[in-house]
């Protein structure tokens, strides 16, 4: 499957799963698990940075359209898409790993630990910014800090589960081959 088709399928499936499955789950009051931004975490290394941001914005905007709350997810998604390359630069261990592999995974980032830091940080930032924007309208801060932390933990568990369920084969590419 080509990278383009794979990513389009991911986009559609993740939005549908997010809106029709996860949004219907009501864990203790209002903690909702989010997984749709896995699309952004899994975007290929080779993609232009501007395109990453535009695609992330589109992803967020699509979910916003379903939920009738324009802007919130679009803002959070474009934020993590902007920060993603910096994080990858810091976390990737060996020189040239981002050209040898297609997209971020435990293998291409040199271990489960760096990958979890990558996923965890982006999840935290995404949820933090999302709930912060929502909190601006209500102004109840402690509640939203706790909400952010709890949601991050639950989303991370979901991401781990998705990672284990849908094992992505990562071929090692070299220029010489």
């Amino acid at each position: 499957m080509s990278t383009l088709v794979k990513n389009i399928l991911r986009f559609v499936l993740l939005i549908l799963v997010q809106f029709y499955v996860l949004d219907k789950i009501h864990l203790h009051q209002m903690v909702t698990p989010y997984i749709y931004f896995l699309f952004i975490l899994w975007m290929p290394f080779s993609l232009n940075r501007s395109w990453q941001m535009v695609l992330a914005f589109l992803l967020g905007f699509t979910l916003d359209s379903f939920r009738h709350s324009p802007g919130f997810h679009a803002a959070a998604c474009s934020l993590i898409a902007y920060l993603r390359p910096f994080l990858i630069n810091i976390l990737i261990p060996q020189e040239g790993a981002d050209t040898n592999y297609d997209e971020p995974s435990a293998r291409s980032m040199g271990g489960v630990f760096p990958y979890m830091i990558y996923a965890g940080l982006l999840t935290l930032i995404h949820h933090g910014w999302l709930f912060f924007l929502e909190a601006m309208e209500f102004g109840n801060f402690w509640y939203f800090i706790i909400k952010t932390l709890l949601s991050t933990v639950i989303s991370l568990v979901l991401i781990l589960a998705a990672e284990l369920l849908f094992y992505r084969k990562q071929k090692f590419r070299t220029n010489t081959a």
Binding site: G71, S78, Y82
Partner: peptide, 13 residues
């Protein structure tokens, strides 16, 4: 571009 997208989102909100 990042700033533009953020501003647009917040404008929408």
């Amino acid at each position: 571009l990042f700033l533009l997208l953020q501003c647009f989102s917040i404008y929408l909100i």
